Simulated scan of single mutants.
Amino acid sequence: MKKVLLLSTGGTIASIKTEKGLTPGRFSRELLEYIPQVKYFAEVTAKDLLNIDSSNMQPEDWLEIAKEIVRNYNDYDGFVITHGTDTMEYTSSALTYLLKNLSKPVVLTGSQKSIEEPLGDANRNLIDAVRFACEDISGVFVAFCGKIINGPRAKKINSKSYDAFDSINYPVVASVKENYVCYHERACQDFEPSLSSYNGQVYCEDQIVPDVNLLKLVPGLDPGLIKEISKHCRGMVIESFGLGGLSDRKRNMFDALENALNRGIYIAITTQVLREGIELGTYALGDKVTNLKVISGKDMTPSALVVKMMWALAKNQNFEELKKVIHTPIQKDIY
């Protein structure tokens, strides 16, 4: 029987009702009491790391979660992290980049309803996460509403519905149906154990640079905002229009970007559009962006791009090196 470590960080799944609304208040051992059936296919040990609303999750917390996995790595076959849904996609991306030589599954899950809700989604999600943590596969994943999603490709798309997450620009890795894990054909190739197992001891990179901001463009945005934001960060991700368009009429974004670049700020460009990514050379305005010293986010999710820049900045101070690291695929996070 596989051994699984359950690490609780709070979130809706562990929340209780108070006069001021839901707040995390349940411990990991209590979560396990709601899913007694897992004892038939896994030996689960529970441990509390945090008990917070995931809106309070910080980059320093990602490091602590990663370190806890490394500390317990040799004693377990897989890991489940219960987490709030609001920032789960950031944490799943961060663990993808921080954990090195990973040869076991790390599965994040949560819920849209507290585990005490009798008709909620928490029980199913937690059972599915434990089940997938028993699989012979390596990587970081999100288990939600019967889907297993590649960690850096996860995106919260619904604020209330149980089907809260989807996989962006990459197929769902697997589905959990009637206690069976059914893999997507593409995932069988990309995540086959023989291809995803590494030689060497697992370890956690111990630095991350949180000074990366995300700016979403809107028509009429004052370019001066880019200048002000650049005073408070080392990196910036800009959600552009469509395939990578920026305004150069009336409110000229290009001058503001050049100013930020000249101040030593690293800038990556992505799109506000949910799927299919950017292609900067398609339109004249996008082609104009290629003349700047910026990094294309290609088909990455904005959240994964932000986190990858935070991780990459901790080890790279040169534009070309940073660009190379961001464009190097890690667990199929970019094409």
Rank of each mutant, 00 (worst) to 15 (best):
L6P: 01
N169M: 07
Y34F: 14
T85R: 04
Y335T: 11
L261P: 11
T270L: 04
A256D: 13
A14I: 06
T282S: 11
A143Q: 08
S159T: 12
T12N: 02
N158I: 07
L221V: 15
N125F: 09
G11Q: 00
S92D: 10
P24T: 02
K47A: 10
D163R: 11
I13L: 11
Y170N: 02
K160Q: 10
L292E: 06
I149V: 13
Y162I: 12
Q207V: 15
S197I: 03
I168H: 03
Q37T: 09
N125V: 09
E321Q: 14
V289Y: 01
L214C: 10
F241Y: 15
T282K: 14
D136L: 06
V172D: 03
N123C: 12
E60G: 07
I127M: 13
L274C: 07
N179K: 02
L305C: 06
R251P: 00
E185G: 01
S161V: 00
D61A: 08
E60D: 10
E19A: 09
V289P: 03
Q317H: 14
L257Y: 06
E185L: 08
A42F: 13
P24M: 01
S111G: 09
K227I: 10
L63W: 09
K288H: 12
F141Q: 02
Q331V: 10
L225D: 06
K39P: 04
A143F: 02
L221N: 09
R249K: 11
L22C: 03
Y76K: 01
G146Q: 00
Y34P: 04
A94R: 09
A14T: 04
N125C: 14
N158A: 12
I157D: 01
K332H: 15
Q272V: 05
L274T: 11
R153N: 01
T328G: 11
F165N: 01
V107Y: 00
I127R: 14
Q317I: 03
A164C: 06
D166E: 14
N262E: 15
K113I: 09
S55T: 13
M88P: 04
E239Q: 15
G84K: 06
D287A: 15
M88H: 09
I226W: 02
A129R: 05
M236I: 14
L274V: 11
A154T: 08
L7G: 00
R263E: 15
